[in-house]
Design a binder for these strands. Structure first.
Length: 315
DNA sequence: AGTAGCACCTGATTGC
DNA sequence: TGCAATCAGGTGCTAC
């Protein structure tokens, strides 16, 4: 469930259930799900078994669990974390039951984890992924370069090595807005490509890029360097407000592929103004929305409201 | 350095 | 009805 609001819905749902639980059993049902582990499923299983989840964290679309191995000090920053990326179709499903008592795994279940909480109740956590672009991996951490919280839900100021290269996400209180606006206004790429570039500002995906551009009345192919600073600031602001709004509704969902840890879908798709609405009238001016592929991604915009160049009157 | 293009998968839907 | 083509919300590598 790929974009920031959907991943945050999953993160907070997981956190509410698995904090302080210990991993008893690990079943890798499809090896490619742990393809980033040099030692494959065996190494993945060995590194996880016996560890406890002390935090469930997220930056942009990347999630991770801070782990504590038995015998490690409670306040020591974790040397390793369990990283998860949902890719295009990843889901977590949590059952408040032991692995033996949980429903049989779905055919898209790639990994099944068995956990025991401090109060001895058991949990089964399934990682489902139809398209298999998602993954789980255990990897080392690096410190945050600015010493601030690494992301939502973190306890320690460390993040997975594989997440170090992306920018803070649009809803991160430690996002350096000034630097983000400078990065957004750089280069010859169309602004939509820049919004999708996770190293600039992370968390924005194809849906919210189209929604933010529609709200800010900016053409998706407008070269990034032609945006004025106020224009970029307005764009970042609407991206933040659209994603915040989606978050309060449990994220956007079109079908059973995108659900929270209980298998329920969000309601934000009702509120979309652009994404998936090619040919339908623009909610502002009634002009049928244009749909085209840009950089291989379906892109929706209003050719009337979103001019490639600012109308003469506003120059 | 910055950017475009493609590869990585499975399954649902569309079109002939 | 059957089968091939197309499409899907992401990321990272490669080559220019």
């Amino acid at each position: 469930m790929p974009e920031l609001p959907e991943v945050e819905t999953v993160r907070s749902g997981l956190a509410s259930l698995v904090l302080d639980a210990t991993l008893n059993s690990v079943e890798v049902r499809r090896d490619s799900c742990v393809r980033l582990m040099p030692g494959g499923a065996d190494q993945f299983t060995a590194m996880l078994t016996g560890s406890s989840i002390v935090a469930v964290a997220r930056r942009g679309k990347f999630m991770w669990c801070e782990l504590r191995m038995p015998g490690e000090a409670a306040d020591a920053p974790p040397a390793e974390v369990l990283s998860a990326h949902l890719g295009m179709s990843g889901q977590f499903r949590v059952y408040e039951a032991s692995v033996a008592a949980a429903p049989p795994p779905h055919s898209h279940c790639r990994v099944r984890l068995g956990l025991r909480r401090a109060d001895s109740t058991e949990l089964t956590v399934d990682f489902l992924d139809q398209r298999t672009f998602g993954y789980l991996t255990v990897e080392p951490t690096v410190g945050t370069s600015d010493g601030h919280a690494a992301g939502a839900g973190t306890i320690h100021d460390v993040l997975p090595t594989s997440v170090a290269h992306i920018g803070r996400d649009a809803l991160d209180p430690w996002l350096d807005t000034d630097a983000a606006l400078r990065a957004m206004r750089r280069g010859s790429r169309g602004i939509k490509q820049v919004l999708l570039d996770q190293t600039v500002v992370s968390g924005i995906g194809n849906i919210y890029a189209d929604e933010a551009l529609w709200a800010a009345r900016i053409h998706p192919e407008r070269p990034a360097r032609t945006l004025s600073r106020p224009m970029a600031a307005g764009l970042l602001k609407v991206a933040q407000s659209v994603m915040s709004a989606a978050l309060t509704q449990g994220g956007t969902s079109f079908d059973s592929l995108y659900v929270n840890v209980n298998g329920e879908s969000g309601y934000f798709s009702r509120a979309l103004n652009a994404y998936g609405r090619g040919g339908e009238p623009c909610d502002r001016c009634g002009t049928p929305l244009t749909r085209h592929s840009i950089g291989g991604r379906a892109t929706h915009w209003c050719a009337q409201c979103q001019r490639k160049w600012a109308p003469r009157s506003t120059r």
